[in-house]
Structures are given as C-alpha cells and as structure tokens.
Simulated assay, not measured.
Amino acid sequence: MKSKRIIYALLVIAVIALGILSRKVTVIPLIVGNILYAVMMFLLIKFLLIQLRYWKVALISLSICYFIEISQLYHAPWINQMRNTTIGALVLGHGFLWSDMIAYTIGTAICILYYAKLK
C-alpha cells in the first residue's frame, strides 16, 4: 500500500511539472495544461483514497475540477486576491471557460480508460 502511495505521489509531482511546462512552452496548446490538471486531480484523489475504485475517484476528481471551474464565475475581492497569487492562479484559475470543462472531461476519460485497461 505504501509503495502505491509513493508511486501516486511521484506521478502527481510529474504531472504538475508537465502542466507548468505546458504553460511555459508556447507551442503546446492551452488545453493540454487543463487535461493534465484533471489527470493530476485524479492521481491526487487516488493517492488520498487509495482503496477507492477508479470510477469513484474519477467522479470525485471531475466534480472537483468542475467546481473549481464554476467557482471562477464568482468574483469577490478575497478570492480574486487569492487568484492573483501564483499558487492561487494555478489552483483556482482566473476565468470560466467551457473549453476547460471539456478538457477536464478528456483528462478524466484518459484516466478511466487507462485504469479500465489495467483491469
């Protein structure tokens, strides 16, 4: 169990690094970063809830991604201040986009397909 958590932790770190890199390299489409965000969320939830079945992990992680995206429609001064920090921008984003919702769905679908192949 502990070795699985270590693997998930390393994967989360790798996906975060790739996601940040995808924002720095201009030839990589922005959607790739959002797909990686969903993959990272899936891996993070699996890390935290290691025993949970992959489809439940997918449902939870996709719900979190959707919630964060929808929360971008809310613009109170306190949350905008958080979004103006580097970490806040990476975690919370800035503006709602339907294309981000599609990217999160694609990223989660990739995780589901990968885990379905393992079974």
Rank of each mutant, 00 (worst) to 15 (best):
R23C: 02
L97W: 07
I50L: 15
A109N: 06
I13D: 00
A116N: 11
M82V: 15
R53A: 09
C111K: 10
A103E: 05
T86N: 12
V15T: 12
H75I: 04
V12M: 11
S22F: 03
S71C: 12
N80F: 01
M101F: 11
I28N: 06
N34M: 03
L118I: 15
Y74Q: 11
A9Y: 10
A14T: 12
L59N: 06
V91E: 12
T108E: 03
N34A: 07
F42R: 03
K2I: 05
I106E: 13
Y114R: 03
I79R: 09
F47M: 04
G19H: 00
L59F: 13
D100G: 02
Y114N: 02
K2T: 07
L52E: 13
L21M: 12
V15M: 01
I87D: 05
Y104T: 01
R5W: 06
K119N: 14
G33I: 03
Y104D: 01
T85W: 15
Y54C: 03
N84F: 10
M41E: 06
R53D: 00
W98S: 01
M1N: 10
I6E: 09
I7G: 09
H94T: 07
A103G: 03
G107K: 05
M1L: 04
F47A: 02
I16G: 05
S71W: 12
V91C: 09
V25I: 15
Y114D: 02
S61C: 05
L118G: 02
S61G: 13
H94C: 01
I6C: 05
L21I: 06
S99T: 06
M40P: 04
M101Q: 15
T108C: 10
I31K: 02
T108G: 09
Y37G: 03
A38L: 00
N34W: 01
R83G: 03
L36T: 01
A9N: 05
I106M: 09
M41F: 10
G93N: 04
A103N: 08
I87W: 14
K46S: 14
N34V: 01
Y115K: 09
V91R: 08
L36N: 04
N80T: 14
V32N: 04
T26P: 10
G93L: 02
